Amino acid sequence: MTEAIMRTTRNLLGSIVIGMMLIGAPAAMASSAEGLAPANNSLSDIGSLQNGAKLYFNYCSGCHSLNLMRFSRIAEDLKLTEDQVMQNFNFSGVNFGERVPAKMNPADGKQWFGAAPPDLSLMARAKGVDYIYNYLKSFYLDPSRPLGWNNTVFPNASMPNPLWELQGLQTASFAPAHGDQPAHFEKFELHQAGSMSSEEFNKVARDITNFLEYTAEPAALKRTSVGIWVLLFLTLFTLLAYFLKQEYWKDVH
């Protein structure tokens, strides 16, 4: 009997450990290549998600779609009303229950940029949150490129910097090639200040990244909140089972 209770207790403890690993798994899976600054975003920060959504729809949705998301789902998950979403996010005129399109015609995007801007629904799962966060911060002026912009995270990217008015205009310094070592990026230099400080713009990049992590797996919001209660229940049940065992066997010598 004692052995069975102890085995049950061990199994419950094991379940708790596994549950904690599963809750942390999306964040671990979303981390990206080494050498990138951590995004440090949090899906539990509803204010960050709301601000990220506002920034996304004002600066990104003109070119990029979110074909796996619906406006109604965004409103429900981000605790926004239908009027708030339709007035502030929906610039394409589609219905509340429809998927999020790009305002730009894909054919125009291909003609102007050389390729149609990709859908960003799963970008956080494909590239990682650190990649997105650093990418948004790493545009620099490059007169050799067709649109005058380049990016150190994604060299020769065909898109301009949509956030340049906030971040400002920066140039990049590269160390020259030496022997077998190719030229490599060293640092950014601010050429013209934007409307935000560096710290404020970091928050902008973090909030957009947070929103895109949400769109990549909307169920993560509810799974995380439910998972916490499950772990609390398992912890409480384990303690009760332990004290029950202690009480049941206290007179057995």
Rank of each mutant, 00 (worst) to 15 (best):
S48H: 13
F89H: 07
V85L: 12
I74F: 07
D77W: 01
L13P: 00
G19V: 04
C63K: 09
S61T: 14
S42P: 03
P106C: 13
P26W: 05
R99H: 11
I46A: 08
R10K: 13
I18Y: 06
A28S: 09
L13S: 13
G19D: 05
R70S: 15
S32H: 05
R73D: 12
E76H: 09
I18S: 07
D83Q: 15
K110F: 04
E82R: 14
Y131M: 01
S92M: 10
A30I: 01
N41W: 07
A53D: 06
N41H: 11
I46H: 03
L55I: 07
E82A: 14
I18P: 00
Y56E: 10
M21V: 12
V100S: 06
F57D: 01
T8M: 13
P38Y: 08
A39S: 15
M86A: 10
E98C: 01
A124W: 02
L13E: 06
S48D: 11
P38W: 08
I74K: 02
V17A: 15
P118Q: 01
C63W: 09
P106K: 02
N95H: 10
Y56P: 00
M123Y: 01
G109N: 03
Q111N: 07
A30G: 15
R7I: 10
R99Y: 09
R7D: 10
Y59P: 03
S121F: 01
V85M: 08
K103L: 14
Q50Y: 08
M69G: 04
L49C: 02
